[in-house]
């Protein structure tokens, strides 16, 4: 599946706004919404990207592999869920750090086009024990 890079940037910008609003309001409902959006992005497409594609009908000048952004949505989902646990259980440091981490990644993607989640992939793989790597060869 190919992805429209403009839709991905738009999605990252909306995600940044929503996560900033979560931090300001401390609303676990809003974070639940964003977690569901991340989950949609992992299994199919981000609803924000779909919204963009519904409004902007012009075709993109180029398309991207959809696997990197999908992986990044998964990273966002992990941080989102961790933040949600923090808010619901009243563990403020966890709530703030996890939500801020997701905001950091989304903002970097929106403003600079850097996919932090994608780049974490190799670091995470490197940290895994050697036994796992033997299998993958």
């Amino acid at each position: 599946m190919r992805a429209d890079p403009r839709a991905l940037r738009f999605g990252a910008a909306v995600t940044s706004l929503v996560l900033a609003a979560v931090l300001v309001t401390g609303s676990s409902g809003l974070l639940t919404f964003q977690v569901l959006v991340f989950a949609c992005g992992v299994v199919w497409r981000s609803p924000y990207a779909l919204l963009f594609m519904a409004v902007v009908r012009s075709a993109p000048t180029y398309t991207e592999d959809s696997r990197p952004p999908r992986f990044a949505q998964g990273v966002g989902l992990v941080f989102g869920v961790a933040g949600l646990i923090g808010y619901l259980a009243g563990i403020t440091p966890l709530a703030l750090v996890a939500t801020a981490a997701a905001l950091l990644a989304a903002f970097l993607n929106a403003a600079f086009g850097f996919c932090l989640g994608c780049e974490m992939y190799l670091l995470v793989r490197r940290l895994l024990p050697a036994a796992t790597t033997e299998v993958s060869q």
Binding site: A20, T92, L96, T99, A100, L103, F107
Partner: peptide, 14 residues
């Protein structure tokens, strides 16, 4: 909630 200062600080860091 201390979130009101984390919200602007995070984009600044980013």
């Amino acid at each position: 909630m201390a979130g009101w200062w984390v919200a602007p600080a995070t984009p600044a860091l980013a």
